[in-house]
């Protein structure tokens, strides 16, 4: 099957070559009992914003489950900040910040309590934890919400809390699985901008979505369709002037 792979499948195509890759996926496949969800996916990305674009059912969530070590697969290799996820999962996970699609906050606890819990899971406690939490909340403009119960927050602020939480242990790579689901337009834009800022500051961001308006022209983009990675590169190089949305729909066959 390798000879059929397009030339673009070489991992060095994506990412600015000057920076070493911080997230590398190599020949990863995954099948549920009968259905193939991921078919020989390879890419490697470095600091900056990378969108993982694909229609529903393309395999985005499966890829995320593999990247977060909730699943493992015998085929292929995943490396996070230089740590092999299957051989040294703990070192790899320590370098990974994750925002799950489904909210994982405790609604009856305050923002501060939610973050303190997470910090402790990553071995950060006491004064260090308090400082890191304050910094992370500050970064997401959430500092004044620390004492509020999550239940009292709106969807956008809940998401920001989750992003702040994912930054507490100072990860190299930040994964977000459709983080804007269920948010209104303003909150969606704010979250998208916040995460782009993080990427501009040097973090490796992988943002899964099926919404093209969350992706900027200068972002890198991986297009996943039916379990295969069908295209990747800088958005403006891929689209060559056409709107990303049209390009994406044509590519995935939703539009003739």
């Amino acid at each position: 099957m390798d000879d059929a792979a397009p030339e673009t499948a070489s991992s060095s195509q994506i990412g600015r070559r000057v920076t070493p890759s911080t997230l590398a996926v190599e020949g990863v496949s995954y099948a549920y009992s009968k259905k193939v969800a991921l078919d020989d996916v390879s890419f490697s990305i470095a600091s900056g914003f990378t969108a993982l674009l694909g229609p529903n059912g393309a395999g985005k969530s499966t890829l995320f489950a593999l990247l977060t070590h909730l699943f493992t697969t015998p085929t292929g290799r995943i490396e996070i900040a230089g740590h092999d996820l299957s051989r040294t999962p703990r070192q790899a996970l320590a370098k990974l910040g994750i925002v799950f699609q489904q909210s994982t906050l405790d609604l009856d606890l305050t923002v501060q309590q939610n973050l303190t819990y997470f910090a402790a899971l990553h071995g950060i406690a006491g004064r260090t934890a308090r400082i890191r939490i304050a910094e992370a909340l500050e970064r997401l403009n959430m500092a004044d919400r620390a004492r509020e119960k999550v239940r009292a927050l709106n969807g956008g602020h809940r998401r920001r809390t989750e992003i702040a939480r994912a930054l507490l242990h100072d990860p190299t790579v930040l994964l977000l699985d459709e983080p804007s689901v269920g948010l209104d337009a303003a909150a969606r834009e704010a979250i998208t901008a916040h995460v782009h800022d993080l990427a501009a500051d040097g973090m490796t961001v992988l943002w899964a979505t099926h919404l093209t308006d969350e992706i900027y022209d200068t972002d890198q983009c991986l297009i996943l369709h039916q379990g295969k990675l069908i295209e990747y590169g800088i958005v403006q190089n891929l689209t060559k002037g056409t709107p990303l949305k049209d390009h994406f729909l044509t590519l995935t066959g939703a539009k003739q």
Partner: peptide, 17 residues
């Protein structure tokens, strides 16, 4: 029920055995 599955995922991605 999925009510706790989210927090289970959070727990299982902590860098511990």
């Amino acid at each position: 029920y999925d009510r706790e599955m989210g927090s289970m995922k959070l727990l299982l991605t902590a860098p511990l055995p």
